[in-house]
Nucleic acid binder design. Structure first.
Length: 208
DNA sequence: TCATTAACACGGG
DNA sequence: CCCGTGTTAATGA
């Protein structure tokens, strides 16, 4: 049940310990793994499917931060669990997802014991930091229409499909804006032959 | 200028 | 019918 990728990167003893202490979990689409503000007891590693990491603003709106796909773990989970701090973010299953849940108390031990684990943790944090900077750039420097295009591209890439089943309202939520704007921008994209709009469905054309 | 909020009509599932 | 969508008008940053 450990993703093939790890078989080649982790040493044998570490793999054994992951088998021993890790819990296998299945999440249905839409299910929440942990809420913002909750104390973390486990670190997730995604085996299959997609987890969505979001930030909640004061009105309860969810801003999309990043996705986790196969082999990914949550960088913020590492940092906050090591200091025993509550989570700053919320994690939900974007689609049906399998994950490996590792108890947080054992991980400090692993970092000291297994170089490949330490390097995995650091790599995860580093990758996410870079991703996060990109997101910040987008929010700070890009217009909403560019953010929307990026969002659609990213979503299509991660889902491996050019057809997205999502409503304008949901998109507005993830980009922390209003539906009026999303509808208007999507309509513009459709008029420019970048996408085709259906009810709760968007088909992305090749030249988006 | 462009986003947000509220309001409304249309129509598809 | 309910909900997603397209649009407009008023207001604000």
């Amino acid at each position: 049940m450990i993703p093939a990728f790890f078989q080649h990167t982790f040493e044998q003893k570490l793999l054994q310990e992951i088998e021993e202490y890790g819990k296998y979990a299945q999440l249905r689409a839409g299910e929440t793994l942990f809420e913002a503000g909750s104390l973390m007891r486990v670190i997730p590693i995604v085996i299959s499917g997609i987890m969505k990491i979001t930030r909640i603003d004061e009105d309860g709106k969810e801003l999309l931060l990043y996705y986790l796909t196969e082999g990914d773990s949550c960088a913020l989970a590492f940092t906050c669990c090591m200091q025993h701090m509550p989570s700053e973010v919320k994690a939900t299953a974007e689609e049906d997802t399998e994950a490996l849940l590792l108890p947080i108390n054992i991980m400090e031990n692993w970092i000291a014991k297994y170089p490949t684990w330490k390097s995995f943790v650091m790599q995860t944090i580093h990758n996410r930091f870079i991703e996060m900077l990109k997101t910040i750039d987008q929010i700070a420097f890009q217009n909403l229409d560019e953010r929307l295009i990026n969002y659609l591209k990213e979503k299509a890439k991660i889902l491996g499909s050019t057809v997205l089943n999502i409503s304008h309202d949901q998109i507005a939520g993830e980009l922390a804006t209003s539906r009026v704007v999303i509808s208007r921008l999507l309509k513009k994209l459709e008029n420019n032959n970048k996408i085709i709009l259906y009810r709760s469905q968007i088909k992305i054309l090749s030249d988006l």
